[in-house]
Simulated scan of single mutants.
Amino acid sequence: MPEQITKYPDVTLRVLKGAGAACGDGAPQKILKQCPADRFCSLPTGEICVYGVAEIPTMTQIDTREIAAVVSPRFTFDRIELLSLSGLGVVLLLIGLILGFAAGKYSRKRQF
C-alpha cells in the first residue's frame, strides 16, 4: 500500500474523505501499521498514508536518500566516491608538501 507525499496533506485527506475513504476515523490499519492514525485512509481497494513534506523523515517506504537523489542528483555521493575524493585530497597534499620542500632546498642553495 502506498505512502503519499504532498505539500497539502490536509487538503488531500479531505479529497480522499470526499471520495469515500475512511480517513483518521480509527479504521483498522492492516498493512500501513506505522502510519499516524490522523494521516491514514482506508478504502475498499487498499490503504493510503498521506505525509506532508516536513514528515518525509518519518516515512517507512521511502528513504530520505532516495528523495535526495531525485531532488539533487549532482550532490549525491556514495561512500566509495567520498573515499576516492578524500584519497585524492591526501595525494594532492603530499605532492604539495614534496614540492614545497624541494623549492625550499633549491632556494637555500641559490642564496649561498
Rank of each mutant, 00 (worst) to 15 (best):
P2F: 03
P2E: 02
P2C: 04
E3L: 05
E3I: 02
Q4R: 13
Q4L: 14
I5N: 00
K7Y: 07
K7L: 09
Y8N: 15
Y8K: 14
P9E: 00
D10A: 15
D10I: 10
V11D: 13
V11F: 14
T12H: 07
R14Y: 05
R14M: 14
K17P: 02
G18Y: 08
G18L: 10
A19V: 11
A19P: 01
A19C: 09
G20W: 02
A21L: 06
A22K: 15
G26V: 08
A27E: 03
P28R: 13
P28A: 11
Q29A: 11
Q29M: 12
K30Q: 05
I31K: 12
L32H: 04
L32M: 10
K33Y: 07
K33R: 14
Q34C: 06
Q34P: 00
Q34I: 05
Q34D: 14
C35N: 03
P36Y: 04
D38L: 12
F40Y: 14
F40H: 14
L43W: 03
L43K: 02
L43P: 00
P44M: 01
T45A: 01
G46N: 04
E47I: 04
E47P: 01
I48A: 08
C49E: 01
C49M: 04
C49P: 01
Y51Q: 00
Y51A: 04
G52I: 02
G52C: 03
V53I: 12
V53W: 10
V53K: 13
I56R: 06
I56H: 03
T58R: 14
T58Q: 14
M59A: 05
M59D: 00
Q61C: 07
Q61R: 12
I62M: 10
I62L: 12
D63Y: 14
T64A: 08
R65C: 05
R65D: 10
R65N: 12
E66D: 14
A68G: 11
A69P: 12
A69Q: 15
A69L: 15
A69R: 15
V71E: 08
S72N: 09
P73C: 10
R74L: 13
F75S: 10
T76L: 13
L82M: 07
L83V: 08
S86E: 11
G87D: 07
G87E: 09
G89A: 14
V90N: 09
V90S: 12
V91A: 14
V91P: 04
L92G: 08
L92P: 06
L92I: 13
L93C: 05
L94P: 01
L94D: 03
I95W: 02
I95S: 03
I95Y: 01
G96R: 05
G96Q: 08
L97V: 13
I98G: 00
L99N: 10
L99G: 11
F101V: 12
A102P: 00
A102D: 06
A103F: 05
K105D: 12
S107H: 12
R108Q: 13
R108P: 00
K109D: 05
K109I: 07
K109F: 06
R110Q: 10
R110G: 04
F112N: 11
F112C: 02
